[in-house]
Amino acid sequence: MNLPVPAGLDTTGYRLGPPQRAGALTMVPVFGPAYPGVAPPRSGLKLSRVVTYGQVELTNPATTGVAIVPLHVGYIQDSAQNHALCRSGFIAAGQTLRFDDACCVQESQGGYLAERDQWFFVLPVELRPAALRLRGTSQYSKLWGDIASFNARHGLPARGHLEQVLTRKRAVLTQYQSRLELLDGQLGALFFVGDRLAGVEIAPDPVYFAELWMALVCFAYGPAAWFAETGAPEEAVEAFEADSLDGVRAALRQRRRRVADEVEEWLARAAWQPGDLVEEERYLDLRLSTVVAETVGGQVVTDGSRLVYASLFAAAG
């Protein structure tokens, strides 16, 4: 299987691991060469304050290492208006950066996020195309309509409150980080919801990916999978045709092969054509670029042709 990333990017050394499955969510782990010197998102990136609705300040408190802000990261705190970012960005060590195009994701909640007791998420994949489209737009309520539609599609009150899913369904969603397991050395993943490629996430190194893992698996891809599997009939479990222990083992191997082939077929069928990269930011040799194509959207960070970070998702949500 090849990584579905924009043409021209060097993916030498990257390889895909055996798929894992939890209900409607299939995760294919990605292993590859680490790109050193990037601050990870939990320990190396802090939300310092919300200046006003729609304006979020992030800080990289480290003394060395640039931070790559995860695409569509959001912060949640009790008694404060939860915010998400519409784009990625670079923050040099010791630097604070204000994002004027952040969006509120909790329509009628007052209060500003502060540094205390915060946890972060990544926007659900169904909202990410709209969020990417709205980067650069300074209007804090810009995503409320999409959030309301997202909620309504899943039988929830049609309001611009993302916390209806992220917080109230948290007990179910957080189980995805146990239902699917992060592997040693893993620095990325392909996520499939049902048989559809929903996203490709590549981090600079395994530590960065480990810190982003929960936000991705539980909140970016978990909701779509959870809604897909809720009410769906359970897959019937049938015994193998085997008349010995060796026969059972062979049948199990065969089934594993079938699952891997099936996932490979899904990936081939996805036929993502990420198209050209549009550069948006630079930090020394690093380039942050946006991908906007018919089937896929997202942002990538490159160093020359070398892939450093990618967060790509199905454009149809």
């Binding site: 939890a22 594993r256 699952v259």
Partner: peptide, 8 residues
């Protein structure tokens, strides 16, 4: 939590 693969 069984993920390789659920049901096996």
């Amino acid at each position: 939590y069984e993920n390789v693969h659920p049901g096996d």
